[in-house]
């Protein structure tokens, strides 16, 4: 997990206020931790207050079955989706489902193996922040968010398809 000190958020480089923790993390009283889904599920009752206060984030994997496991998901201030490698495109669909079907409006973070050249697509699928691999030049990468100013399809950031907007 990257957990870099700087992330891209809402198009700008900013301090990373969050930290992904592992499955066996024990101190759940910390603020700003991002918990794997299973860890949250096991401690749901005691954490729900702090989730609604925006102090706990949730980490989802690409194979997370949102249809069966979505309860309370919209309450988080931040959901991070882990990309095990940049060729694994499942997170693009998970993101759209969170935004378009499960009412998630908080910070949606792409975490891990995505590359700069995917930022534009990721943004269109609803991601608002990016915690990239440490060796990526984040200042240069942020420019790639603007690779395209138009797209044919509907997307989270442009919910009307081009064919309905064409004059």
């Amino acid at each position: 997990m990257p957990n870099n000190t700087l992330v891209i958020k809402d198009g700008k480089i900013t301090d990373n206020l969050w930290k992904i923790v592992s499955e066996d993390h024990s101190d759940l009283t910390q603020d700003g931790i991002i918990l794997p889904y299973s860890l949250w599920l096991a401690n749901q009752n005691e954490l729900s207050q702090r989730v609604s206060e925006g102090k706990i984030g949730l980490l989802l994997e690409g194979d997370h079955n949102l249809q069966e496991q979505n309860e309370g998901i919209a309450d988080f201030a931040l959901i991070a989706i882990n990309f095990p490698g940049f060729m694994d495109g499942r997170g693009f669909s998970v993101a759209r489902l969170l935004r378009e079907r499960y009412g998630f409006t908080g910070e949606l973070r792409a975490s891990g193996g995505v590359i700069r050249d995917q930022l534009c697509y990721l943004q269109r699928c609803g991601f608002s922040s990016f915690d990239l691999d440490a060796d990526i030049n984040i200042e240069a990468a942020v420019e790639s968010l603007n690779d395209f100013s138009e797209g044919y399809q509907i997307s989270v950031d442009l919910p009307t398809p081009l064919f309905r907007r064409r004059a």
Binding site: G89, F92, S93, C120, C125, G151, S155
Partner: peptide, 9 residues
């Protein structure tokens, strides 16, 4: 063309 969700199938 440039479908944002399906570029890494």
């Amino acid at each position: 063309t440039l479908h944002p969700e399906f570029a890494f199938l």
